[in-house]
Design a protein around this nucleic acid. Sequence first.
DNA 1: TAACGGAAAATTTTT
DNA 2: TTTTCCGTTA
Length: 972
Amino acid sequence: MKTTSNPQDTLAESLNGIYLVDAGAGTGKTHTIIRRYQNIIESGVSPADILLITFTRNAADQLKESAMVNISEKVNITEILEAPILNFHALCARILKNSGSKSAKYLGIDEEVTSNFTIIENFGFENEVFRKFFLMFKNKTYDKYEEIYLGLNNKHEAVLRIIKFLATRGIFPTKDGWFNEAGNLFNGRMEDYNLRFDELNEPAFVKNDKSGTKEKQNDFYKKIRDAASRSFYLSFDINSLLTENRVNPEYKEEIFNDDTQSLLIEFTRDIYWSYIEFMLKKNYLNFEFIVMLAFLTLYYDEKVRNHYQYEYSMVDEFQDTDEIQFQLLMLMIKDSGGKANLAVVGDWKQGIFGFRNTTIENIMEFENRLKKYKGLLNKDKSRITYDVDNVNKISFEYNYRSSQTILNFSKETLKTEAKKDEQADFETTEQRFGQILKARRELDDLTDIQFYQSEESEKAEIDIVFRKISELINEKKYVCREFDKEGKVKDERPLRYSDICVLSRTNNFCLKLQKEGLQRNIPVNFGGWLELFSSDQAILVLAWLRLMMNENNAEALVPILEKEEYNFPEIRKIISGLKDKATLFTNIPEDIIKFRNRLCGIKENLLRVTETILNRYGFNNNVSSALLNEIDGWIKTDLISLGELIRLIDSSKKDTYEIDINRTREAVITQTVHSAKGLEYPVIILSNMNQSLFPNTRSNTNEIFYLPVPGLRFRKKFETKDDYSLICNNWKSDVLIKMFKPDNYDEERRLLYVAVTRAKQYLYFTSFRPSQFFKHLAELTGKEPIKDFQYEVVAKKKKIINLTETVPAPQLIKPSPEFHSVHDLMNEKITGASDISEAKAVYRASTEAMDHGVMIHQLAHRLANKVKVDSDNEEIKKLKKFISKLRANKLRTEVDFLYPKDDKVIRGTIDLIAFYDDRIEVIDYKTDRNKKYLEKYKIQVGIYKDVIKNIYKDKAVTGKIYFIGLDEVLSV
DNA sequence: TAACGGAAAATTTTT
DNA sequence: TTTTCCGTTA
């Protein structure tokens, strides 16, 4: 009998049944999966019956490649090539294309899923698509969901985010309810709430020498007190929640019961459902909907389900799956005589994609979830027939990457305090962690862990990083030891640049390192993703496009003039001289006007426009071609106008793209911890361990959020009291967030674990403003941070040999100066209405005006360019007539202005300016059907007049308000 | 030592 | 907008 002392062997050789495999960092996971795959084939199973799922395309390709090496004689290569070795989304897309054309009907949607749908990959793009849909939907349903729209204040992105979130949780809308009655989840669980409330609100005591113990403020009280001092709720005094040292229990019930919740649930269902329908009509799908529709197909269509069921299934990186993917997987497992053959392999300690809705509970609660989902999937009909009670657990014990010193150290990372005196359950963590992996590589004579603290500036920290790199490269004591497959020492050699990886929590720091490396002649490659539309190339493209739209756009001129190397006083002069452009003279350099005119001449071809702009500056590298590529993609869809392109670039600034700006062969690599997952290096320098960066403290709560205990909630509320009304936070939601939103520090700690376990031999930490992680980790391991590290930064060789020319790192966008809108200035949020209905009416008028403004903007632009406007819309006809009757010398529409006042810059847009011989007239359109709020509008136009008066000091300035609906003009 | 409040600084990425 | 750090006060 063969003894299998090694758990890796156990997995590779046990083929039948359900296996949950805890495969820590560097335990040879992929290798074992391939061995197991080959063993299954050896046992006579066809590759077509073995499902192998990973999370990324790359990983799937690699697995497929490895599977073809040492292939069994029983199969041929073509069989492997066609085998289902892929990632979740590719699998779902395949199901949809082959068998999913009717899948939307399960939600009560008539639209078909065509086989040539376009997948929207880019959030910025989808957000734009969604914006258009949202405005349409809002118009149609305003009266029904007025409460929501008033609170939402056109923040459509919040709605899109909650839709995508719900889809990954397996919560889908149907025409008149929710799939699998998931809507029941939304009302929350009051009993759990009550328990939590009591638990949080238990009295806390402090020991006192004189009188024994004394009650002090409990943590719940402190949180509310904090909110009370910083938040403002118009119709509720949150101080009333505070009794002595505790939260007033009289409010217990009231906090949970929110009478707008049911409307929010219905709104969410309605817009979610309609959006799916809208996307299908446009032949679009996003990744969430692909999985959703594939799941529904398998769920409802027995034939298709049987077709896609596999005898053997394996999933790699199981900690990166979300809830719906787990369920989808269960539907694809074939019942083999009442048993399932499934192996999921992963490591909860490396679950770092929570923001993408992946959940490590899929591993930690694996057995429970199997049972729970089996029940869910069998709710109305038997779908899962195999037994899920018997789960075999395997834990890999050996590590083939790091020194034992580093492995021992890695355990500390999960017990590191993220903030001072953090109360976290580190005991449970300790238990879960289990045994420390045993090193199978003899490296402990060549290993080191140190902490370096620089002076308090980012530049000083970057200095330290480069000093350390120089030391590592030039000092003989640092040696890289390499091993062969059997674990025998193959080579010992000095360190090379490419042995070193500088990790950071943020992309930004990596980019700075890369740039600095160029200046110091130390080769550094950036291995992360780029905010393409925040690069200086994109900023210039956007600036020129804006200038094409409006030649007096100061915001557009600034980056252009900066690039032409005008200094600040000169730029200010030119911008303040924009007034003359409207008449005869201008300070704008002639060259810029000429180039703008040239661009306007080819504006029918926006791709050429972009190309021309990039050529002007000689931009010709990976960044510029990525820009052209992406814009080309947009133009080929239906979003083609200049205005829309500008909007799209604007909303894509935060989207990241994988762009290769690495051009040097032998270089230090710098990347984010997230992107380094799965990689290994002899040296890891974990940099930028600074306060508020790592651990990161930012936590955005969506305006609409879902948490299991409180259910679906809305953070905003349109509140009215006495003479005022404004959009406030919903105080009940705020309290519930404080009660139930989990700290995400556990995930930050796992990120720390991932970073540390990348290192084979040498591990260093750097910081200039030490975060709690840096401090506490040094403390836990008894290391004193080195504060006076010196080493001369020298490149190893004088000249770095590059494969091709070095591409400079793209500049990041500069922080823009503080701008204030006219609306800020008017303090528009506070209206002078005296009752709720009136206040709502004011608000409705102003938000409607916003929607309308989009239309008017385009229209005004077209009229100014004498483009024919086809519309039967009464208002547009009236507007046309109104404009033609003005008989001015010159008209300017949608004039953006920047107007310095005190220490602020006011930004605004004037609908229309008419120039006459003796005067200038400022005109503002209003779509209201009455003149109730005339006084308010007068203030607004008054500000516009001030602005214009200040620019044209020698001319009279008049103002008019044109109520389009009433067809009435009023002088102001 | 508890309580308060001002200052400072703020993200990750795959499909 | 939200959160932590940290100095001041009682």
